[in-house]
Design a protein around this nucleic acid. Structure first.
Lengths: 249, 249
DNA sequence: CGGGACTTTGATGTAACTCAAAAATTGTGG
DNA sequence: CCACAATTTTTGAGTTACATCAAAGTCCCG
């Protein structure tokens, strides 16, 4: 279990004030996928009203069950979204990265956050109020449609995850997760997966025990599919993993 | 495996012509949840353009991977939505019933259907074209928002299913499924679950083997939690099932 | 009353979990 | 920068929930 002693853990508001940063080019709203269909003046309006901040690894943006009155745009870094299940075991729903928005679901539905968002790689984010979002939805049906498409895309992914967990073995799922991590996140200069996860986090993605992940990674390594160096993972034989994971596309 | 010899299996269009029915009060669009926020004249417009039909058990409304150019409203009956996984094994995503709409995700995303929709209890449905939907989205942002909320609600449910399958045992999941079926579908005059499912379908909801469902149902019966009479299932001790299924709410 | 589809029961194998304890890595304060 | 504490990772052994395979029994419906 983790116990990060971070300001964000204890008081979200204080962190925001401490971490406030200028609306620099590091926080360009035009690079947010969901905003691609906004007109220049709408982007301008958002840029005026949004709130930029910087967060270290371990910080919490929002917590499952909390009321949130806005959503976040990720300009840089990686944010882990997870739900807390039985005995406090995490289930990782997704990793959000540059260009993604998170938390919009809760404000559209007028419900409390259904996941916790924790920074796992130092991030620049913007906070946009629920009010700003609603103004745009009202004014621009193309944007509204884009948002709907985003929700539908995530729904599709979630349904695919259900069938994966229900029908594939742990080994197959782990192989697939490695492939997906390679596709979603760049490689570093040494060809390793750029995202750094603990074995426990990998287990929480796959839906298994930490020990199982460890044994399977060792197995993959022994077969020459991957190379391991601490938390660095390098995929050597992607084809083998594709086959092992029964991945079609 | 199933081999329904139904027209719908071989030619969807023919079925529609055969099954066309008048736009009777059995197909009242005002009873569709997603249309609650439409104005009377908008409902009127939809009623003009929609297409009503009747389908027997076993009929297919659309198939995973098919292009669909509209969506369906369920006025009566039950429709099973499932994805086909490894070795053709079904994973049931949800059951749609009176008041629900299905297939809208695909037309919003301009993608092929990601599930197959099969009637499991004789149904009255309306087909509404993609064009009609878009007209409404464009004209009425409140409706647009309602649709977005629907997608977000389904997304939330899907995420909850993920954590359930990943962290609960088959026994716990089966107990939960029985509870959910009781909540979502009425009981018949003999206090049995009104929805009639094969053991295989139950297995495809839970994500397990048919034999496991059979053994666990026998176990539940032996403990006095449920009564069985063929496919009729009566829940006797809901509290025990709640506890067994580790259900909080 | 015969045949196809479902359901049930039994026997067996194994993937994966759990618990425990050692080894390695990471972080921290003096 | 080192020593010590705290995580995290790894390995081992034992257990079990669940899948698989096979065969018999039951239910329909024409």
């Amino acid at each position: 279990m983790h116990f990060y002693h971070n300001f964000a853990e204890t008081d979200n508001e204080i962190v925001k004030i401490i971490n406030k940063i200028p609306n620099s080019q590091q926080c360009d709203l035009r690079k947010i996928e969901a905003f691609k269909r906004l007109k220049p003046d709408e982007i301008e309006m958002l840029a005026e009203e949004r709130y930029c901040s910087y967060h270290n690894k371990g910080a919490i943006l929002y917590r499952e069950g909390n009321r949130i009155n806005g959503f976040y745009c990720i300009h840089k870094g990686i944010v882990k979204l997870f739900k807390t299940g039985i005995n406090g075991k995490e289930q990782i729903i997704k990793f959000a990265k540059q260009g993604d928005i998170i938390g919009y679901r809760s404000i559209v539905s007028h419900e409390n956050a259904c996941t916790t968002a924790r920074i796992i790689q130092e991030s620049y984010v913007s906070f946009i109020s629920s009010h700003s979002l609603m103004t745009l939805v009202k004014a621009n049906y193309i944007f509204s449609l884009a948002l709907m498409q985003l929700a539908c895309k995530e729904l599709d992914e979630a349904n695919n995850t259900i069938i994966k967990i229900a029908q594939k073995t742990v080994k197959e799922r782990l192989a697939e997760v490695l492939i997906l991590l390679k596709r979603d996140f760049e490689l570093d200069n040494k060809q390793n997966l750029q995202i750094s996860l603990t074995r426990e986090e990998l287990a929480n993605m796959v839906g298994t025990a930490t020990e199982s992940v460890i044994r399977l990674l060792a197995d993959f390594k022994a077969n020459g599919y991957i190379a391991l160096d601490g938390r660095k993972i390098r995929i050597i034989d992607e084809k083998a993993l594709l086959k092992l994971g029964k991945i079609n596309d």
